[in-house]
Write a protein that binds this DNA or RNA. Structure first.
Lengths: 342, 342
DNA sequence: GTCATGTGCTAAATGCATTTAGCGGATTCT
DNA sequence: AGAATCCGCTAAATGCATTTAGCACATGAC
């Protein structure tokens, strides 16, 4: 029908072409140490392999070795926010560097889909599993016992596990530092989430972010204006809090926002009063979502380093660094136009 | 070291446990038609397989059949915008429905990386290839001859190929229809891209979007105000055009924006003049990126249906519908708060 | 009773790469 | 010279599922 039977080149073909046995070919092409094959033989084989365009059959290799050179990524959400995509990018490039490929599945946050996906992956004999989460809660994952080496990215399990998290313990201090450099004397903190902040076991990232923030604030000379607790971290929430704050007569030199979506609402409220971030006051935020660069002026934000987190997960898996515990990645401050000073 | 040798359950184990041959087990478990095995035998085998938790070894199956039940997705960008993620979601669920898994690679738009990725995928014996693009230009892809069935999503090749595109030929008419329903008499079209609009061969989506828009506008009773050509489709461009438009005294009943990023800039310019979309005038946009729902008021937008496009690509591949040509997916209008009427 | 069919099932080949045990010849040691 | 060692290389086993050819027995036709 199609091409006249584009037969696959196998090791047998290379063996025949080079006049050596299949065993010799395999030994040579895999650079096995301790073998005693002659230089000419080695060269003949390599030449023949190249000539024929030989590529070992991955299925056959897997069948023999039990290894697939494939990693599984199971994410709760691929679709929303820049995070999942960036994590995927990090994982993809790290895996490619080490000659592995990546199988992807998505659970939409449903526990049974997670189990299903894990079993799928186990069935496909992946060499390791990465579980990615879009919000870093601690969950009771109830992972099926597959024996697969597993790393969680941006999440924790009730059971001990290997986890990669953003270094939120430093993030707040960094923010306060930058606010001080802006020359501010007073600051408003918009976006505490009451439940989350007081439950560090369940919400490691949020609680650490705020603990770090409040600790640094307390040690600083900054005057903290009001206490702006939100229901949620959406633009509407930031907008409402800021409108209220301005109506109550507060006029901070700087605003620290819980995240970029909150900051977006803050920007809108400020714009309505003719206040321009970066000129009339400073605004600093967390996460560095895509909207941070869309906003006018562009938003300075402390970035969630998903790409590096994904890459580290791959390395941990492939280097067999699998003692349960947390690995943390620093969060860089992405300087744009919403902060005064510097 | 680990578990005491968690040996894999093979077909031989099932064979032994059920007292039937391996051949019989394979025949039964695969529901081969035309076989004449007794009902009791069939049941014994199924019971044994279930009991032991037998799962066929994928590598062995692939080795035998030459099929891997794996699809390759190569995307130029996973990281930016919601599109790639959504395409991945569509592909993932469609593939899962048909019991296939998906291998993913990213090229960052670099042609040599594309070739590299395709060869990787071919080497891994994927059953089909999906090439995803974030902006739908026609490109000279120079695909290596792998013989792999291939579908392009949101892109075209110079050579004939199977492609899935959004149905932009309808999108403009739909937009104009909605603007008429809003009760508008006049409209401004913000965001023509001169080069792209006049080069339908290279920019099928943009040119069709605008051709459709202009055609429908000409047939309608609407007065079209000004001609707002942009350099690029970023918030800044939309902001600048709108500011200028308002300064020149234009005051359209409705604004149609080239895409959501442009609309974001339009919103900012309107806000500065105290104009509220959905109340003082209507704003309609294209793409339905995440920011569309972040904006205040939330932006009504005609959606790029990436998820369905991805899913269709999978079906085309698995159904072997591979005659070169275009498949189009309708673009739904996502109603939110920025349009009057209805 | 004999030949032809039908029935239920299995042995063995196959796909491909990897790895171990070991063969035959050359060299070195005693 | 005979034994021990080394060298360069290969035959064959292995991993697992699928599929084809065909075996042994039962049933039916004449």
């Amino acid at each position: 029908m199609d091409t006249p039977k584009a037969k696959r080149v196998t090791i047998a073909d290379v063996s025949e072409a080079s006049g050596m046995s299949k065993a010799a070919v395999s030994l040579i092409l895999n650079n096995k140490p301790g073998t005693r094959l002659s230089v000419e033989a080695t060269e003949r084989v390599r030449a023949a392999a190249k000539e024929l365009g030989y590529r070992p059959n991955v299925a056959a290799q897997s069948l023999r070795s039990g290894k697939t050179r494939t990693l599984g990524l199971i994410s709760d959400q691929v679709t929303v926010t820049r995070f999942a995509s960036e994590m995927i990018t990090g994982i993809l490039s790290a895996a490619e560097k080490r000659d592995h490929t990546v199988l992807i599945a998505e659970t939409f946050g449903k526990p049974d889909q997670l189990v299903e996906a894990i079993e799928q992956m186990a069935h496909r004999d992946v060499d390791g599993l990465i579980l990615g989460f879009m919000d870093s809660r601690r969950r009771d994952l109830k992972l099926p016992q597959t024996g697969l080496p597993t790393v969680l990215v941006n999440g924790l399990d009730e059971s001990p596990s290997v986890a990669v998290l953003p270094n939120e313990a430093m993030s707040g201090a960094q923010a306060v530092q930058r606010v001080l450099e802006s020359g501010a004397r007073s600051v408003a903190l918009i976006g505490a989430l009451e439940g989350a902040e007081k439950d560090p076991e369940t919400y490691p990232s949020i609680s650490r972010r705020f603990a770090s923030l409040r600790g640094a604030l307390a040690e600083s000379s900054l005057e903290v204006l009001g206490n702006w607790v939100l229901e949620d971290w959406n633009p509407t929430d930031g907008y409402a809090a800021t409108t209220q704050m301005l109506a109550e007569g507060f006029r901070p030199d700087a605003i620290i926002c819980a995240n970029d979506r909150v900051a977006m609402g803050v920007f809108q409220a400020l714009a309505e009063k003719g206040l321009v971030p970066g000129e009339d006051l400073s605004v600093l935020s967390f996460d560095d979502e895509i909207i941070a660069s869309y906003l006018r002026p562009r938003l300075t934000s402390i970035r969630l380093p998903y790409e590096k987190m994904g890459a580290l997960a791959v390395d941990l898996l492939l280097d067999r660094k699998l003692e349960p515990g947390e690995h943390q990645i620093d969060m860089p401050l992405i300087e744009r136009d919403s902060m005064k000073g510097e």
